[in-house]
């Protein structure tokens, strides 16, 4: 990194902290701190929702996914616009009109304190751990770019974010998110421009896209119905619908954001912004990965994008084996480049296109095979079983191929993506712990000033906790997967409880609580004993909660009589 790039990164960090801190002057009551006085405009909240959802893992991981597998991951987001409409019609008016601070608070009004406390506890447990992963995954990659240790990088990400979130509350989070979103989109567009300009003079954009398409990297629709395949049209439109309804409708980090708007229609407007822009934005991120694939197809690139492992293996005990693998990679890449040029020539001539395309596909499969072998080699040589080169593709491209200035802008964009997610999650964790536990069970009568102090301490505590988890997760790679799987255990189940809350007047509190436990048990069984892909776990969890919840409620009504069961069951 050059001086100008460092300058851009430092200016970005200082600007964010300053901008966040200047919001503190409007924060003198709990509603101002947690809900921005319910006065934020829909467009700012909409951008904030999108910024929180777009993490640094998206910037570094999804671009790498586009490089390796192409755009098929886009199918994951196809249900999002429909989920936004469903939520705008159902949960949003319930939350907004009930004047709650947290989504779980609503569950006590409808059911009982134990259902509220349990769902909130699930949120705190899973979110705090996954926040550690959200910090850890990019920190590991950014530490390579900055030449810092992982602990130092975690501090660079978490400390400034914690400072403005602690003092500025949700207003600071939302308004910094708006600026961070500008950085993210600006950085992504700059990357696309550099990638297109960087194509060889004799390769047009159309040629490049035809080459990418021929290797399957522009596939955005897979209509096969396979429950074990994560990314198909059906899992993206049916199973993901449940995931997005759960995430945007019951996860405090999202619900809190649209509670900051002044009316139900403004809250709906903020969600519909994601409905319009999420798929195109995600397509842009994946397209960057695809363009990097084309770039490195015509320009010799590294076998492993993680420079540290590459260097260690070149100098290690198995250097000869590694060099042999490197030679195979160079040969396979040269042959693929020749095949790509032959394919473009065949297209231009209008003959022999099918044969040239088949050859290109075969050569590409060969290169992919050698890269996969190299990654297995790293895992065996270093003992790091979770090593994945995918996350290093975009950062390596930025630091080695981008012009000065754009490097700084893109690193600031990655930091922005990380910080917007961290800030949103910290604010949500603080709100849930203070409102659902401290104020509910410990000090219900305390003053707003007291709660504000406690909220700031809670924000600081969660920042410290997630940072420690981040450093720990960096050294225990496999933990990341455990945390991600843990989260998927109850997303659908929590959605099921909310479906019972607003959609089933006959559901009782015991029915909802037992249904929730049954839903989580069903998901655990599906995850442990069936090959069903995790997206479908959301459907399994939600359906199990609704069925078991209604059954238990009906049994309770029969045993105790309708009057006793209905005591709390009000819609």
């Amino acid at each position: 990194m050059r001086t100008l790039d460092w300058f851009i990164v430092v200016v970005y960090l200082v600007w964010m902290v300053w901008d966040g801190l200047r919001r503190t002057k409007n924060v003198d009551a709990l509603e101002g701190y947690f809900l921005g006085g319910r006065s934020l405009p829909w467009w700012a909240v909409g951008l904030s929702v999108m910024a929180t959802q777009l993490s640094a893992i998206t910037m570094v991981g999804t671009t790498g996914q586009g490089f390796n597998d192409g755009m098929r991951f886009l199918q994951f987001y196809y249900a999002l616009p429909i989920a936004m409409i469903v939520l705008s019609v159902t949960l949003v008016p319930f939350f907004h009109n009930s004047g709650v601070y947290t989504a779980y608070e609503y569950l006590e009004r409808r059911f009982d304190a134990k259902t509220r406390a349990f769902t909130s506890l699930l949120f705190l447990g899973s979110r705090s751990m996954s926040l550690g992963v959200v910090i850890s995954a990019p920190a590991v990659v950014i530490s390579v770019m900055f030449g810092l240790s992982v602990t130092q990088t975690v501090l660079v990400l978490a400390l400034p974010t914690a400072v403005y979130t602690m003092f500025g509350g949700v207003q600071a989070v939302a308004w910094t998110d708006v600026k961070q979103m500008v950085f993210i989109v600006g950085g992504l567009l700059a990357a696309v421009v550099v990638l297109i300009v960087g194509l060889p003079a004799d390769v047009s954009l159309s040629d490049a896209l035809h080459v990418a398409g021929s290797t399957g990297r522009l596939q955005t629709f897979d209509f096969s119905f396979d429950l074990t395949n994560q990314y198909t049209f059906w899992s993206g439109t049916i199973a993901a619908l449940f995931l997005f309804c759960s995430y945007f409708g019951t996860d405090q980090s999202q619900v809190q954001r649209y509670l900051t708007t002044k009316s139900v229609d403004e809250a709906r407007g903020s969600l519909l912004m994601s409905a319009y822009w999420k798929i195109p934005l995600q397509a842009l991120v994946l397209l960057i990965g695809v363009l990097m694939f084309v770039y490195y197809l015509f320009t010799p690139g590294p076998m492993l994008f993680d420079g540290r492992h590459d260097q260690a293996l070149r100098e290690g005990a198995r250097a000869t084996e590694y060099q042999a693998l490197q030679s195979r990679f160079t040969d396979a890449s040269d042959q693929r480049r020749a095949a790509a040029r032959a394919f473009s020539a065949a297209r231009a001539a209008g003959q022999g296109v099918d044969a040239a395309q088949a050859d290109l596909r075969a050569r590409d499969a060969e290169v992919r095979g050698v890269r996969a072998e190299a990654q297995r080699f790293v895992r065996a040589a270093t003992g790091d079983s979770s090593y994945n080169d995918t996350n290093y593709v975009f950062p390596t491209f930025i630091t080695t191929q981008m012009p000065v200035g754009v490097v700084g802008l893109l690193i600031a964009a990655i930091l922005a993506a990380a910080m917007s997610t961290i800030a949103g999650e910290l604010s949500a964790l603080s709100t849930a712990s203070v409102i659902d536990f401290y104020r509910r069970f410990l000090r219900p009568e305390a003053s707003d000033a007291h709660f504000l102090r406690v909220s700031r301490i809670a924000t600081g505590f969660w920042a410290l906790f997630s940072s420690v988890v981040a450093v720990w997760a960096a050294s225990l790679g496999s933990l990341i997967e455990v945390v991600n799987r843990f989260g998927s255990f109850f997303y659908g189940s929590i959605l099921g409880v909310f479906i019972l809350a607003i959609g089933a007047k006959r559901a009782t509190s015991n029915g909802a609580f037992i249904g929730l436990l049954a839903g989580m048990a069903s998901v655990w069984y599906a995850a442990s004993y069936t090959p069903v892909a995790f997206l479908w776990h959301n459907v399994i969890g939600a359906v199990a909660v609704v069925i078991v919840g209604l059954l238990v409620s009906e049994i309770e009504r029969q045993v105790r009589g309708p009057a006793a069961s209905d005591a709390r069951a009000r819609a």
Binding site: L74, Y78, P81, I82, M84, I85, S88, V89, L209, H210, A212, G213, S214, G216, L218, Q219, T220, F221, D265, R268, G269, L272, A275, Y276, I279, P280, A283
Partner: peptide
């Protein structure tokens, strides 16, 4: 039609257009 209902219809129409464009993109370049 209320304002919100027409907003929802607009979202669905744009959604279908985006999916159609992506499908055409995949078919054209594959």
């Amino acid at each position: 039609m209320s304002t919100m209902t027409s907003s929802y219809v607009r979202v669905v129409v744009v959604w279908l257009l985006v999916l159609a464009a992506l499908f055409a993109f995949q078919r054209y370049f594959s």
